[in-house]
């Protein structure tokens, strides 16, 4: 099996294989700066809420992480479409899709966790089965399923094709989750900033939320670069492993 589209950084003999580049280091640094800023604004500079007191600060984790989850799942769908568009072109798109979905699942878990803690403080319950919470849990499970489909085995292109179809279907859940608070009566509040004309958010709270979205997006990009390269290396190992096995059989034949 040929390995035409495997690019692993630092594969030259003798060098230490890694996934870092100048660009990822720059993004990593920016992420650290963003997270520190988020801590300062979220915990110190932004005020406590008139009704929720300090528990409102969970907002800066809850919204930032779910934003990343949405972006990650949308990018998974985009990369999957790109893979299917010209099937023979590149498995790189498939690895982008896979890496993005993994990060999305991670951040969706964080969203659920932060939301659950916030729910305990404001609703009085860790968990309720209202439309927003239920649809979010459903989406989380769907993408865990997507990752399972990726692991079913077969060739890399089989994996890519199967999972691309799942990704294109699963992405339809994003509008379902996002608009669930408008479509149905639930316990979860409506969004405060997205698709609204009147934003009822104190200035510094809004700014902290803005920093949260920036910082988490940077973290997503950083994780994405590294993870996608790790996946490329894994594919390369699969391929060279097969080549090695084939070579051994051929050698046996030569005897």
């Amino acid at each position: 099996m040929a390995t035409p589209d495997i690019e692993t950084p630092a594969t030259a003999a003798g060098t230490r294989a890694g996934t870092g580049t100048v660009f990822t280091r720059f993004i990593g640094l920016a992420t650290i700066v963003g997270m520190v800023a988020l801590g300062v604004f979220g915990l110190l500079l932004s005020p406590a809420d008139v009704q929720q007191s300090d528990s409102v600060r969970i907002l800066y984790i809850h919204v930032g992480t779910v934003w990343v989850a949405y972006v990650a799942f949308a990018f998974t769908a985009l990369a999957s479409a790109a893979y299917l568009w010209k099937r023979t072109t590149s498995l790189a798109w498939d690895r982008f899709a896979g890496a993005s979905a993994e990060i999305g699942v991670l951040f969706m878990a964080l969203t659920l966790l932060a939301g659950s803690l916030w729910g305990r403080l404001s609703w009085g319950k860790f968990w309720v089965w209202d439309a927003r919470v239920t649809s979010t849990a459903f989406m989380f499970v769907t993408y865990v399923g997507y990752l399972a489909v990726r692991g079913l085995g077969g060739s890399h292109h089989q994996r890519a094709r199967r999972s691309a179809v799942v990704a294109l279907l699963a992405v339809l859940e994003i509008p379902l989750v996002h608009f669930s608070v408008k479509l149905w009566r639930g316990l979860h509040q409506d969004s405060s900033v997205a698709d609204r004309t009147n934003v009822n958010l104190h200035g510094l709270m809004l700014f902290s939320l803005f920093i949260s979205v920036i910082a988490f997006t940077l973290l997503y990009v950083w994780l994405m670069m590294h993870r996608q390269r790790v996946l490329a290396m894994q594919d390369a190992i699969d391929n060279t492993g097969l080549d090695y096995a084939l070579q051994q059989r051929r050698d046996e034949g030569d005897l």
Binding site: D49, V50, S192, N200, H202
Partner: peptide
């Protein structure tokens, strides 16, 4: 609770 937040 609502989706409105203000300073305490």
């Amino acid at each position: 609770h609502s989706n409105e937040y203000d300073e305490k």
